[in-house]
């Protein structure tokens, strides 16, 4: 069930630019139905944590002729949209992160779009579109090769 605008307003009461954040979140979840808003505590590098909203789920990425649902998590700071979201790829237990220019070993995503973030030129929809293009060239996660089960041992 989709989260309503009123529910989002309640979730985002502590956000400084709540209406802008609600408006953008709505357009993301309408367009990318596999992303949903979730409140959770985000732990910063200095150990402090804050209750923030993330958009968590998958985005469709086309790679070598197939479409994959790449799991991501976009954290919105309470100063959003005047600061860029903090973005991660979230590998499942069957996936492994492919570190590279755009992703580090923790899954944190680095993109010029985030680095040069400037409201209102930058927004979540634009960011997701960039991710879809960049990840389509260089996927941030791969499936782990399946380990074949050992031969069953026979009991005499």
């Amino acid at each position: 069930m989709a989260v309503s605008e009123n529910q989002l307003k309640k979730m985002l009461t502590k956000y400084k630019y709540r209406d802008l954040t609600v408006q953008e979140t709505v357009s993301v979840i309408v367009q990318y139905k596999d992303l949903k808003p979730v409140m959770d505590s985000y732990v910063f590098n200095d150990g402090t944590s804050r209750e923030l909203m993330s958009l968590t789920g998958t985005i469709p990425v086309s790679y070598k002729g197939n479409t994959y649902n790449i799991p991501i998590c976009l954290w919105l700071l309470d100063t959003y949209p005047f600061n860029p979201p903090i973005c991660f790829v979230k590998p499942t237990s069957t996936m492994t992160i492919k570190t590279g220019k755009h992703v580090d070993a923790n899954g944190k995503i680095y993109l010029p779009y985030l680095h040069e973030w400037k409201h209102p030129l930058s927004d979540l929809i634009g960011l997701i579109q960039v991710m879809i293009v960049v990840f389509g060239e260089e996927p941030p996660v791969f499936s782990r090769p399946t380990i074949s089960a050992p031969y069953p041992s026979y009991q005499a």
């Binding site: 069930m1 139905k33 596999d34 949903k36 789920g57 998958t58 790679y63 070598k64 197939n66 994959y68 649902n69 790449i70 799991p71 979230k90 590998p91 499942t92 069957t94 996936m95 492994t96 996927p139 996660v141 791969f142 499936s143 782990r144 090769p145």
Partner: peptide, 14 residues
């Protein structure tokens, strides 16, 4: 699963 899509990734290139 409540409308969620199962995450998928390309097969390992190795």
């Amino acid at each position: 699963l409540n409308g969620g899509t199962i995450p998928t990734a390309p097969p390992s290139y190795t």
